[in-house]
Amino acid sequence: MSTIHLIDDSATMLMSMEMLLKRAGYTVTKSNSAEAAMKDLQEITPKLIITDLNMPGMNGIDLIQTLKQQTKFRFMPMLMLTTESQQSRREEAKRAGATGWLVKPVEPDQLIGVVKQLVPAA
């Protein structure tokens, strides 16, 4: 049972990604803000975290940076959702410990392809 945890302040985005991932056989959990994610992730241990970059409150990069300081998350793959124009942020995300990124709007094939790579066992 591979769980993927999604973080985005848009319910629509969360839902659309959840649908794609569930169809591909993954279990999905969600939080609608970085702050909520910090709490939710105390209980869950997913195989992969996908977080939006721009959210009210803590942004995706800071979230990744904070999580990476915990033992539980030190090796966990994390992806950041960015928009076309945020290239410099991707590099920043890598420095913060992100594995990679996805550009919105995310193509279903692309999402599943990347996820399959980072979560070998479905």
Binding site: K68, R74, F75, P77, M78, K94, G97, A98, Q117, P120
Partner: peptide, 14 residues
Amino acid sequence: CFFRGEDPFNVLIT
């Protein structure tokens, strides 16, 4: 690279 969630062997094999 492990700390960034990377898994090189699997990147290679695929």
